[in-house]
């Protein structure tokens, strides 16, 4: 590895992610990519990368890596203490990590997933055009472990004129997410959508990059027959036989056989990816624009 960093600590889960592998659904390969796509794009813009360059997605902090060469990095997403050789650095800003120095992310105060962009981008071997780790499909690089090499490409283009991006604070206890009812709200009893839109749901600890398991009021079906499997999207609120919804994230299955009562709008899927176990989610409906 000529240029890059070496992983010292990973925390609970650190993976390489970019914007995923579109176009392969026909052979059972999902999009995957960063769970919070907006934060990955921002991290890349700060260091002058293409916005889809591969970054490290750090789940719940605890990541440390030693620079092999002089690096320029930015950390976005879940707000956590960032240090370079023990010296504090800021989130959402340009940080210089000299060769031999250790970049470290502590436990996030808010949010769940932080993104580390390195100028030049992480250039581990791509699979089907993407460097993302898809945990459900078992595609892409293995999750990072101590000693993993993170080779970094050559930068192209100038650094942007700003070296800091203002970012809204992440909520601590309650997150409001906008949904559009459907595609299968007609498979549910009329009071199911009312319950979804009026009652709080709690994020369960079984949540991961595939989906957020939720506890809360049951969503009763009006049609009991089997739904033929159909394509699904990130943000879908799929209701399995437990009658409690699962909110699909980046590594969700390509197709699913349970009805989706509503779908979280794209920008709020990013927010959902920052929801920690124990947090409350509240869903608000946005009707489809009339045509």
């Amino acid at each position: 590895m000529k240029n890059g960093m070496q992983v010292l600590e990973t925390g609970p889960l650190s993976t390489v992610q970019d914007l995923g592998r579109p176009g392969h659904a026909g052979i059972g390969v999902g999009l995957s990519g960063a769970a919070d796509r907006g934060s990955l794009r921002l991290a890349n813009r700060l260091v002058g990368n293409d916005e889809g360059a591969a970054c490290v997605e750090v789940t719940f902090g605890g990541f440390a890596a030693r620079a092999v060469t002089d690096l320029v990095v930015a950390v976005t997403g879940a707000t956590c203490p960032v240090t370079v050789d023990g010296r504090c650095g800021a989130m959402n800003s340009l940080l210089r990590v000299p060769a031999g120095a250790v970049l470290r992310l502590g436990l996030p105060a808010t949010g769940l997933r932080s993104y580390v962009a390195v100028r030049g981008g992480v250039i581990v071997e791509p699979v089907l055009g993407s460097r993302s780790t898809d945990l459900l499909a078992g595609l892409g690089p293995e999750p990072l472990s101590t000693g993993s090499d993170l080779p970094v490409g050559l930068p192209h283009g100038d650094l942007p004129p700003i070296d800091f991006a203002p970012v809204a604070c992440q909520p601590v206890e309650e997150l409001r997410l906008t949904v559009v009812p459907g595609p299968r709200q007609d498979w549910f009893a009329p009071d199911a959508l009312t319950a979804l839109l009026s009652q709080p749901y709690t994020v369960l600890s079984e949540s991961n990059r595939i989906g957020i398991r939720l506890d809360g009021p049951v969503l009763t079906r009006s049609r009991e027959e089997e739904l033929p499997s159909e394509g699904t999207v990130a943000g879908a609120l799929q209701v399995p036989p437990s009658s409690r919804p699962t909110l699909f994230l980046a590594d969700h299955p390509v197709t699913g056989g349970y009805p989706v009562i509503a779908v979280v709008v794209a920008e709020d899927v990013d927010k959902a990816a920052q929801a920690r176990p124990g947090m409350t989610l509240r869903f608000t409906a946005r009707e489809r624009v009339a045509e």
Partner: peptide, 26 residues
């Protein structure tokens, strides 16, 4: 449209939320 997901009775069109106009695509 970023991807097409055929299934037994449905075809899902995945959209790029930043560029797609769902009404026009419909």
């Amino acid at each position: 449209v970023t991807d097409l997901v055929p299934a037994a009775r449905t075809l899902l069109l995945r959209l790029d939320p930043r560029t797609a106009n769902p009404a026009e695509i419909e």
